[in-house]
Design a protein around this nucleic acid. Structure first.
Lengths: 326, 326
DNA sequence: TTGCAAAGATAGAGCGCTCTACTTTAGGGT
DNA sequence: ACCCTAAAGTAGAGCGCTCTATCTTTGCAA
C-alpha cells in the first residue's frame, strides 16, 4: 500500500479511501491511485483490513453435509441475500466427521464472522446457545425454540396434509406411510400423517423405515404383502419413495395404476424421466434467504428470537393417479 | 489476549505460545493460561494471527457450481488432504453468475490464501496464468498444459475405451454415441469413441446432444428410428443416458434386452434402483486429493508444472446386457 | 561454590490496513 | 482584501496477534 501511495504521490490514507470507494476523494487522485495500483498488481489484504476496521463483512455458513444438495441449495439462498447486503459468505463444513461440526463452527468464530448460519446442525441446543452468545446465530432446522437464536424450518405438518388431501381427492382410502425414523422431519411427518388420516376417519397405516432407498424397498414389500395392501404410499422422503418404486416395478405392479407413490423433498431425483415422482417440494433456497434475512436483522440489533416456518407445496408428477375401480 | 495474560499472571507472548501449542512452555504455565482463556471465553483472532505471521494456513477452493455433486465431492477430497497437512479450506463459488468466478477467485486472493484449487473454471488460460503468478494454482479440468499451473483431469479416452470394450464383449456391433457437444470432456469422449470403433473396424454412429436429459431422449428417438437401429447406446453422460432410458421405456423397448445403454460419470442418479445404469465412474474425491497434493508440492517450492490424469473405471449395472440373437 | 548451557519467559517492534483528528486548499460572500 | 466553510488530503495511533532478540531461571558438572 505504501508502494502504491508513493507511486501515485499521495498518502497511504488516501489509497485506503480510494480502495474503499470513498466519495471524499477527487476524481483526479482516484484515477492516479487506481493506475498505480493496477501497475503494481496491488490488492488490499482482507485480513489486515478486517483487523483494522474491526468488522469482517463476512457471514459464516456451516453445512453439515456438502454432498446433500439440500444444503448447497440452501447455501445459495444465503449467499444471494448476503451478497445483496454487501457481505461475503464463507462456507465451512464438518465433512461428516465426529466433532467436525464443532471444529467448523469454531473456525468460523475464530474468523470473527459477523454472523453464523447453521444448516441442520446435529448439536444439542445448549451448545448452540453458547455460540449464540458470541455471534448472531440462525439455525435452519426443527430446533427447540430458544430465545438466543433464530430458526427457520419447514412446515412438516402442512406438507403431510397436502399429501393426504391429494390422495383423498384421487379417491384413495387405504393410504400407507413409510416413516423416516428419527431423521430430521421424520417424526413430524409421521404424526401429521396420523392426525390427518384420523381426522378423516381413515386408518393410518404406518411402517418403519429411514431415509434410505433400501428401507423404502423393504417397506413396500411388506406393505404389498398385507391382506389388504394400500392403494397409495406416502414415503418419508424421495429416496425412500424411489426404493418403493423399485420394489413395485420388480413385483410387476404398475404405478400409478395399481399403486400411487408419493415422496417428500422434491430432490433432483424426483424429476428425472424414469422416476417422475409426485412429491412435496421444499423451497431450499428460500430457507437460506429467510435465514440470512433473520441474521441481518440480528446484526442490526434485534434481540428477541424469531422462528420462521416455510410452507412446502405439492408437485404432481406421474407416480400418483386416481384410484382404479376394482 | 492481554486480559488472558493478566489473569494468568504471564506475558502476552507466553499466551501466544500456548495458543499455538509451542513445546517451549512449561506444563504449569500452559495450564494457567488455558484456564484463564477458558474462563474469559478467549479465542484467538485468526485475522490478526494471519496478519502477524504472514501465513494463512489456508487454501481456497473455487467451485463454479455448488449444486453439482461433481464439485462438492471433489472439494471433499481437497479438504481431506488439506486438513491432514494442517491447512484450513475456504470454499467460494461464483454462484453461476457472470463474472462470478473472477469475483470468487479475487476474494480468495485478497484473503492471501496459500494456494488455490479451481474446479473446472470457465476462464481463458491466460487469466489463470495471471492468478498463478500470485499464488500456486491447481486447476481440475482439461486445460491447456501451461507451465504456470498444475492440472488434474480425467482420462476421457480410457473411459471411452472401457465402454466400447465392454459392449464389444457383450457382442454388440452397432453402437451409437450421443455426444455431449462442447461441454467439458465431450469432444474427448467423442473422438476416443470414434477412434476405438474405427480401430475395431466398426462404423461409429454419432448423434449430437448435450449434457441434458432432454437431449438424450431426443437422440434416442432419432437413433431408434434408423433403418438399422443400434443395439447399444453410449451416452455422453448419465443425465443424457437417463433421457435415453426414458424414451426407450416410453417406446416399449426393454433395457437391456432390446437395447443396452451406458452412461458416463457415475453420479448418484446412475445408482438408484429404477435406473440402474451401467456407467463410467470418475473418482471425484480422488481428483480433489490429487489436486491438493500437487498444491502442497507447489507450496513447498516445486516450480515446474505437473499434469495428472486419473483413470476412470467401469461400473456395470443392469442397463447393459448381451446382444440378443435375432 | 562457581560457571555455563538449556529451558522458560518476556519486551517491543511490526504485520497492512483503518480511523480519528487535524491541516491544507479551493471557492464564495461581503 | 477579508473571513468562513466545505472539500480534499494527511499524520499517526492502534487493531490483535507473532517474531526476534534478549533476559531470567534452573539444573548440573567441575
Amino acid at each position: 500500500m505504501d508502494d502504491v501511495a508513493a507511486k501515485a504521490g499521495v498518502s497511504r490514507a488516501l489509497v485506503s479511501l480510494v480502495m474503499r470507494d470513498s466519495p471524499r476523494v477527487s476524481a483526479s487522485s482516484r484515477e492516479k491511485v487506481l493506475a498505480a495500483a493496477a501497475e503494481l498488481g496491488y490488492r488490499p489484504n482482507l485480513w489486515a483490513r478486517n483487523l483494522a476496521s474491526g468488522q469482517t463483512h463476512t457471514v459464516g455458513v456451516m453445512l453439515n453435509d456438502l454432498h446433500n444438495p439440500y444444503f448447497t441449495e440452501m447455501a445459495e439462498g444465503v449467499a444471494e441475500v448476503a451478497n445483496k447486503a454487501g457481505l461475503q459468505v464463507l462456507l465451512n463444513t464438518g465433512w461428516q466427521r465426529d466433532g467436525g461440526e464443532v471444529t467448523a463452527i469454531e473456525a468460523l468464530l475464530s474468523l470473527r464472522t459477523d454472523g453464523l448460519v447453521l444448516a441442520a446442525p446435529r448439536l444439542p441446543a445448549e451448545i448452540l446457545d453458547g455460540y449464540a452468545s458470541q455471534a448472531p446465530v440462525v439455525s435452519v432446522s426443527n430446533y427447540d425454540r430458544l430465545d438466543s437464536f433464530d430458526t427457520v424450518c419447514n412446515d412438516e405438518a402442512h406438507g403431510a396434509n397436502l399429501i393426504v388431501d391429494h390422495l383423498l381427492e384421487l379417491g384413495h382410502q387405504r393410504i400407507a406411510h413409510i416413516d423416516a425414523g428419527s431423521a430430521a422431519g421424520g417424526p413430524e411427518r409421521r404424526s401429521a400423517f396420523i392426525d390427518a388420516m384420523t381426522r378423516y376417519g381413515l386408518a393410518p397405516i404406518v411402517v418403519e423405515g429411514d431415509f434410505k432407498e433400501d428401507a423404502g424397498y423393504q417397506a413396500a414389500e411388506q406393505l404389498m404383502s398385507l391382506r389388504e395392501p394400500p392403494t397409495a404410499i406416502f414415503a418419508g422422503n424421495d429416496l425412500s419413495a424411489i426404493g418403493a418404486l423399485t420394489y413395485l416395478q420388480t413385483a410387476g405392479l404398475r404405478v400409478p395404476e395399481d399403486v400411487s407413490v408419493i415422496g417428500y423433498d422434491d430432490t433432483v431425483l424426483a424429476g428425472i424421466g424414469t422416476v417422475s415422482l409426485t412429491t412435496v417440494h421444499q423451497p431450499r433456497p428460500q430457507f437460506g434467504r429467510q435465514a440470512m434475512e433473520l441474521l441481518l436483522e440480528r446484526m442490526k440489533g434485534r434481540t428477541e428470537a424469531r422462528h420462521e416456518q416455510i410452507e412446502p407445496w405439492l408437485v404432481v408428477r406421474s407416480s400418483t393417479g386416481p384410484l382404479q375401480p376394482t
